[in-house]
């Protein structure tokens, strides 16, 4: 114990909660990926020193209350419309850092149009996409990203392609759009992936200052309650099944397409 007292001194702290996170206890279920991603965004905001310049757009879904946890200005958007709020906010205040934070139902289903068009316009915003293959808040219904065979409360016998269509690879679609500059798929299930994910989020924010297009960061995540698994087991299930269909890593790391390549057609 004497040792512990020597170690646990202020000057020996190597990791502590960032001040950009509030002291509110998160409402998320134990082990929820949202908490980790919130933390990473807050850490990036702190490291870039942009707390006074960042506006977050929260979605409808479990992370609707993101504004209770990250100590910045927030707009709580209508379901799926966060990219529209973000578009106007960024265009009206181009020097601010604007990011949307959306789940799979919000971003890939009801808000698919807003997502694709914001990315296609190349809005200089950062879009954070939490893909846990499920509607968490409303009780674990099928999302566009639910894997085939995966049981949800609206696919109690497993997702069936004839009945429900195919799991949607939104990130691949977004990567094909000329307006995006950085499109990546990350996760936060272990320490290494958390570090990688943080770098990706940081790059997404830094890209805003460069004004090179939309940065889109999918974070393949778990929904322990919806998946009906303990957190550790859910992470393992994700690695085994989700990663096979949603491969991890960068899909695009460039700048938005050069406008000159498009102007030439009418010349």
């Amino acid at each position: 114990m004497a040792d512990l007292e020597k170690i646990m001194k202020e000057e020996n702290i190597v990791y502590k909660k960032t001040k950009v996170l509030t002291d509110n206890v998160m409402h998320y279920c134990p082990g929820c990926s949202h908490g980790v991603v919130h933390k990473l965004i807050a850490e990036v905001i702190e490291e870039l020193g942009i707390q006074d310049k960042t506006i977050g757009i929260s979605p409808v879904g479990c992370s609707v209350f993101a504004y209770n946890y990250i100590d910045i200005d927030w707009q709580e958007a209508a379901h799926g419309r966060a990219p529209a709020n973000a578009t106007a906010t960024k265009r009206l205040m181009p020097d601010k850092f604007v990011f949307s934070y959306q789940g799979d139902g919000d971003l890939a289903s009801i808000g698919a149009a807003e997502t694709l068009h914001a990315c296609n316009r190349g809005e200089n915003i950062t879009m954070i996409f939490i893909n846990n293959a499920m509607y968490g808040m409303t009780g674990g219904q099928m999302a566009p990203t639910t894997l085939v065979g995966m049981k949800t409360s609206t696919t109690p016998y497993g997702r069936n392609i004839d009945l429900n269509g195919y799991p949607m690879k939104m990130t691949e679609i977004v990567a094909s759009l000329p307006g995006t500059c950085y499109v990546t798929r990350q996760s936060v299930h272990d320490a290494a992936s958390v570090k990688r994910c943080k770098k990706a989020i940081k790059k997404g924010f830094e890209n805003q200052a460069k004004k090179i297009g939309t940065s889109f960061i999918e974070i393949t995540s778990t929904c322990n309650s919806g998946w009906k698994m303990p957190p550790v087991e859910a992470n393992k299930w994700m690695e085994k099944h989700m990663f096979a269909y949603y491969p991890q890593g960068d899909l695009k790391d460039a700048e938005r397409d050069n406008p000159d390549d498009y102007i030439k057609y009418i010349k």
Binding site: I55, I57, Q75, A77, A78, R81, A84, N85, A86, T87, A88, T89, R91, L92, M93, A113, E114, H117
Partner: peptide, 26 residues
């Protein structure tokens, strides 16, 4: 003044929501 042709009326009004949130005349 920013002028933007949105992808739908749904997007337009939510852009207005975003702009109005910033205290702008939108």
């Amino acid at each position: 003044m920013v002028v933007l042709q949105a992808e739908s009326e749904v997007a337009s009004i939510n852009m207005v929501y975003g702009g109005a949130s910033c205290g702008k005349k939108v």
